[in-house]
Design a protein around this nucleic acid. Structure first.
Lengths: 180, 180
DNA sequence: ACGCAATACATCGGCACCGATGTAGTGTCG
DNA sequence: CGACACTACATCGGTGCCGATGTATTGCGT
């Protein structure tokens, strides 16, 4: 399974969990969520929908077109709803470490509807963020922003650090309010 | 050209700009730079190297293996050096909007070695960050963190906002010191 | 002496990606 | 009432992705 596909399928399942939608509307919502990072080509969305349909996670019902061409309204099956909750409860390692995929998980995590399970997922992310890491190394030793004379690489580290701090603060607050 | 390929090729050109490297070392450096987000499969790296070789941007010289198997030391050609500077000076729109690709540009922007050109690239990113944007919409209206009752989606917005602020601060400081 | 890990490179096959392109109906503005 | 934009769905083809797998060498631990 390709990286993109994993994220795309999660987004499809996540948006449909709330309400049935047709492809075009789905595409707009996915574009808003991840579009500036990675625009969704329609020719990527439709095959993804077909894969999920084939796997029995969603069904398509053709409705006469009220505004334009006939719509295929997409609706999750019970298996589909189960599968979304499974993917949210047991995200794989890359869902935790890849920022894009992690945000996709976060965007739908409320569907898990189980505070301890949600807290467990947040704690996995917290453990990952607390590991020391850098983007640039001197041999094996991670370089800190202050050690770089390149202002652009210093920027990379400065921004990454600010993000990481903001996220850790949010994680701690949220874990507390989840009664972790 | 695929999204991933663009970023991967930039990283290859960027790391080789400093010094010739063999594939294995290149892979380690790319992994440090982007690995937690998107691990580089060796079977993706080698075809990318071949593409760049075919395009005349780098050459491979076989050296007897000092430690293990014979190494193919990769060295940028003059065309390759020119091409990196071109890609840095004229990043396409997605290099600006896609966070992953933007950080790859930043990691090598010093190679551009031309303060006004560097400043122009930073200003493009600044313009993008200053556009109002959200991940979630009520119709067409972007939703703010405070309006969401979903704590996880609120987290997405809170973290994104902190990142954006940190980056804007850094951009302004750096533009000033570049004499923009 | 042997196994295992690490270094270093490489191929293959199935599938995913996505730009280009096509079809068809609806809304609207001049 | 013709042009154009938008909604909505769909296919095709060339290319990239990447897990699985293979080859060969060095070197360390026990």
């Amino acid at each position: 399974m390709r990286q993109n596909a994993v994220m795309l399928e999660l987004a499809i399942l996540g948006f449909l969990y709330d309400a049935p939608l047709h492809g075009y509307e789905l595409r707009k919502r996915i574009s808003a969520l991840t579009g500036h990072v990675r625009p969704v080509a329609e020719s990527t969305l439709y095959p993804a929908i077909k894969r999920l349909e084939k796997a029995g996670l969603l069904v398509r019902a053709t409705e006469p077109g009220a505004v334009a061409a006939p719509r295929h309204v997409l609706r999750l099956t019970d298996d589909g709803r189960l599968e979304l909750r499974r993917r949210l409860a047991e995200p794989d390692e890359r869902d935790i470490t890849d920022e894009n995929r992690w945000f996709a998980v976060l965007a739908f995590l409320r569907h898990l509807d189980d505070a301890p399970a949600q807290a467990a997922v947040l704690r996995r992310r917290m453990a990952f963020l607390e590991e020391p890491a850098s983007f640039f190394y001197d041999g094996d030793r991670p370089l800190r922003a202050e050690e770089l004379d390149d202002p652009f690489r210093r920027g990379v580290l400065t921004i990454a650090r600010a993000t990481s701090r903001a996220e850790l603060t949010w994680l701690r607050d949220t874990l507390e309010s989840l009664g972790g």
